[in-house]
Design a protein around this nucleic acid. Structure first.
Length: 407
DNA sequence: TCTGGGGTCCTAGGACCC
DNA sequence: TCTGGGGTCCTAGGACCC
């Protein structure tokens, strides 16, 4: 029996959430972004009319639409709303697989019957999300995730499109490879496909697997399947979603700097944020990596596997500082600093009982409690102050994939 | 004041071991 | 005196996603 997979994709998600929570923003061109040297994360449909798009610098957005309202993103709010969406969808089925903060795949095959079509089911889901949260979404339905995803892009906002397996081939036949963005064919891959003479999804499906494997490695077989509209990956149950694999933060400085005390100060601030999230998730990390981007956009990363693992901001910072020290001298002014902790494991409270480690944890425990009570960075190590003086912006979390997946 | 921030996955090369 | 050859871990970079 043919499956019915639906992708629910929220429309202009961050911007819409802001417009719902602040009536003054409704009907107005707004963009959700960060501060300082930032780009547009999401533009409202009113702003899109002016040509404002995601990933555009705020500067460009203002040039296209001078009256645009820039709203600083609030990740907690978006995550919270996202969980509410999941809750609604879980009323229909436990096969809900979050694909990003604003998208979920669902297998609704079992909800369809003679009298109830997949479109009927999706319409009900859309209705509940709209009624209960005031948000619009587009639903794409297909025999698998790839087709569902492509279908969801056809009608926005508030779309509802079904592509049945019988019509998938016709749909893909002349679909430009650029339109496959979102299903694993990004800018570089579509450009390469074009160079190889493959301009449409239809041609991609017709290409020989050997040929594709030669040019794209293991991705080759997957690409051919995409061209054929085939995808064998099922939809996971909500409870079976992947564990989070890494946690990190990065920050673009207000201006480039050669001052290593400023760079270290940002590392400290980012360690603080990362450590707090690890704590919230109850995780301990085994690997710390730092990222440095120079003013000319050259970027490098270095990592270290720690013998004892890291948990507190102090431990993360200690590791990060050492990695930075080993990378000195840097070869230019620094634009961006980042930290990521991976190799995560459940923190069962039994490990790392060394005395000195515990002492610093008692301190950071106290800092954590105070910050929870009075807000982020109420209590902080003195070196963060350098970053603050330098002009760090806070509370502008951005969108990421798999951020919702609970460890 | 061109070019954010949060993630996942793949690859290629070197170290290391048997 | 011709350089073996796997397997695995680690590192760094890059493509891709939203």
């Amino acid at each position: 029996m043919e499956k019915s997979i639906v992708l629910i994709d929220m429309n202009a998600y961050f911007a819409s959430v802001e417009q719902v929570s602040n009536p003054l923003l409704r009907g107005k061109p707004i963009v959700v972004c960060g501060e300082g040297r930032t780009v547009v994360t999401t533009a409202s449909y009113e702003a899109r009319k002016f040509g404002v798009k995601t990933a555009m610098s705020l500067y460009e957005a203002r040039a296209l639409c001078p009256q645009v309202i820039a709203v600083c993103g609030n990740m907690d709010k978006y995550v919270d709303t996202s969980l509410k969406i999941h809750k609604i969808l879980l009323d229909f089925s436990d096969q809900v697989e979050p694909f990003s903060i604003d998208e979920c795949f669902m297998d609704i095959t079992h909800l369809c019957s003679k009298g109830v079509s997949a479109k009927d089911v999706a319409k009900k889901m859309k209705g509940r999300i709209k009624n209960e949260l005031g948000l619009l979404c587009s639903a794409g339905i297909g025999p698998n995730k790839v087709i569902a995803k492509l279908a969801s892009k056809l009608e926005k906002p508030d779309g509802l499109v079904e592509i049945k397996s019988g019509s998938a081939a016709a749909f893909l036949e002349n679909l430009p490879v650029e339109e496959l963005q979102g299903v694993g064919v990004g800018r570089k891959t579509s450009a390469k496909l074009r160079l190889l003479g493959i301009y449409t999804a239809g041609r991609l499906g017709a290409a020989s697997e050997d040929f594709l494997r030669f040019h794209f490695g293991v991705m080759g077989s997957y690409l051919k399947n995409v061209g054929l509209g085939l995808d064998y990956a099922g939809v996971k149950k909500y409870s079976e979603n992947d564990q989070i694999k890494s946690v990190g933060h990065s920050h673009t400085l207000p201006r480039d700097t050669r001052d290593m005390s400023v760079v270290r100060s940002y590392l400290m601030m980012l360690s603080q944020k990362t450590g707090e999230r690890l704590r919230r998730y109850g995780l301990t990390g085994g690997t710390v990596s730092i990222v440095i981007r120079y003013g000319d956009f050259r970027t490098f990363s270095k990592q270290n596997i720690l013998k004892n693992g890291v948990k507190t901001p102090e431990e993360i910072y200690g590791a990060a500082k050492n990695i930075l020290a080993a990378a000195l001298p840097l070869s230019g002014p620094v634009r961006l600093v980042g930290i990521r902790v991976s190799g995560l494991s459940r923190d069962d409270g039994q490990q790392f009982l060394l005395d000195d480690i515990n002492k610093s944890r008692v301190l950071s425990e106290q800092i954590y409690e105070l910050n929870k009570k009075y807000g982020e960075f109420t209590v902080k190590p003195s070196s963060v102050l350098i970053a603050e003086k330098f002009g760090v912006s806070e509370g502008c979390g951005m969108r990421g994939r798999h951020m919702l997946k609970k460890p």
